[in-house]
Simulated assay, not measured.
Amino acid sequence: MIQVWLALLGLMLTFGLMLAAQGAWRAKRPVVAATPSQARPTTASLPIADMLPAVDGSTGTVALPDLPIPPGANIADRGVVAARPFAWGRASAIDRARAMQCLTAAIYYEAGGESIDGQRAVAQVVLNRARHPAFPATVCGVVYQGVERGHCQFSFACDGALSRTPAIAGWSRAAQVAAAALSGGVYTPVGLATHYHTFAVAPAWNRAMVMTDMVGAHLFHRWKGYWGTAAAMNRVYAGGEVLPVLAPAPVTETASGEDLPPAPASLPAPPLPGATPAPVRPVHPQEMPTPAPPRDTGISDRLATSGQILDKWKDSGRPIERPDAPRPNGSGATAVTDQRR
């Protein structure tokens, strides 16, 4: 019996020594960079690619790129890191003009009521996205991403805001902010943010993000891990700006059963305020459409011939005569008095 207890005690001591040795080995083991699956949120915590459009007051989001993370990449959270200044690279004059137009529209319609800092922060998000491999590589591509499917990343591109002609003063201020950002100006407080939303909404993607700053009515966020670092935003601007094209609008019916007119096939950037309209070609009489036959409105014709006045209302509107006032001279004349009712 004593031998059995001694054997059990020996096994327990041996097991304890093995655990101690394993713990010491783990403590001395060098730290290895995280794998791509460890460095970014899992697919369960992220939306499906391009499946979360923008809601009122926020940007939409996409899935992270299915690309390997460079070995030895530093994914430690360093707080707010300023983005690099925007550089044009190989950009034509058309690219510059279109990028300026698209960025101005994003600033005006997304942050037209914000301060200068609020508008600079929105411009920085657009340029950060243009550098990130998860988004299009052009300014107009970022601003109007998903518009061809009615699944926009910026809400103003799909909610009909572009049909409103911008105010001259507001557009000019947004254009100044856009020009400064495209000339290399950086709004440091938001860092590498690629998303934002207002206080009024709480989009699902913010659980997979790190908040960088609050500017005006917007909260700004970046991705966690490697995809939220400056090393991930390594794309060089190469030009090729393309204005968006709308998808055909769905056919709907009005209450009278008539079809609504189709939406335009193209969606250029909003017109500059104060721009001279294009000349209108005179229409030949033969090109005039044939007027539709009159429709029965159901309104009685008596309303059109109701010119009779009841006897009790015939004298309404005439001034009240004073007892001591002189009588009017002449038939049909009315004395003008200063008495008020």
Score class of each variant (00 low, 15 high):
130 A>L: 01
249 A>H: 03
29 R>A: 10
316 S>Y: 07
49 A>P: 06
293 P>S: 12
316 S>K: 05
209 M>S: 09
69 I>Q: 06
228 G>M: 15
89 G>A: 02
105 A>H: 12
28 K>F: 11
250 P>R: 01
288 M>A: 13
143 V>P: 03
324 D>F: 05
158 C>L: 10
231 A>P: 13
258 E>C: 00
213 D>I: 02
194 T>H: 07
107 I>D: 08
264 P>G: 06
264 P>H: 01
296 D>Q: 06
67 L>Y: 00
61 T>I: 05
172 S>F: 04
243 L>E: 15
252 T>Y: 00
329 N>E: 06
119 Q>T: 00
14 T>Y: 12
288 M>E: 13
6 L>D: 14
191 G>P: 14
201 V>M: 04
157 A>F: 10
181 A>L: 09
320 I>A: 12
323 P>Q: 03
272 L>E: 07
153 Q>V: 09
68 P>S: 03
303 L>K: 05
130 A>M: 05
56 D>H: 02
119 Q>K: 04
214 M>N: 09
18 M>P: 04
146 G>S: 11
263 A>I: 00
85 P>V: 07
185 G>L: 12
322 R>M: 05
139 V>S: 07
31 V>C: 10
132 H>E: 05
34 A>W: 05
325 A>I: 01
277 P>D: 09
123 A>F: 01
249 A>P: 00
56 D>R: 01
150 G>S: 11
203 P>M: 08
246 L>P: 10
261 P>G: 02
211 M>H: 03
204 A>F: 04
97 A>L: 08
28 K>S: 15
85 P>Q: 07
291 P>E: 10
25 W>L: 12
147 V>S: 11
332 G>N: 01
93 A>K: 05
38 Q>N: 11
87 A>H: 11
199 F>T: 04
328 P>H: 02
230 A>N: 14
120 R>F: 00
141 G>E: 13
77 D>R: 08
43 T>N: 15
79 G>N: 02
162 L>D: 13
150 G>E: 10
22 Q>W: 07
88 W>S: 05
293 P>T: 09
39 A>Y: 10
244 P>G: 12
205 W>K: 04
42 T>R: 11
74 N>W: 03
280 V>T: 15
281 R>V: 15
138 T>L: 11
71 P>D: 04
189 P>S: 09
195 H>L: 12
250 P>N: 00
2 I>F: 14
290 T>H: 14
38 Q>E: 13
213 D>A: 09
87 A>C: 08
260 L>H: 00
291 P>K: 09
338 D>H: 01
177 V>Q: 08
207 R>I: 05
133 P>I: 08
326 P>H: 00
289 P>K: 15
123 A>T: 01
164 R>Y: 06
64 L>Y: 09
12 M>R: 11
96 R>I: 09
317 G>R: 03
281 R>Y: 00
338 D>W: 00
158 C>Q: 14
284 H>C: 11
157 A>P: 15
201 V>S: 08
291 P>G: 07
138 T>F: 10
152 C>Q: 13
183 S>G: 15
273 P>C: 12
137 A>C: 04
129 R>I: 02
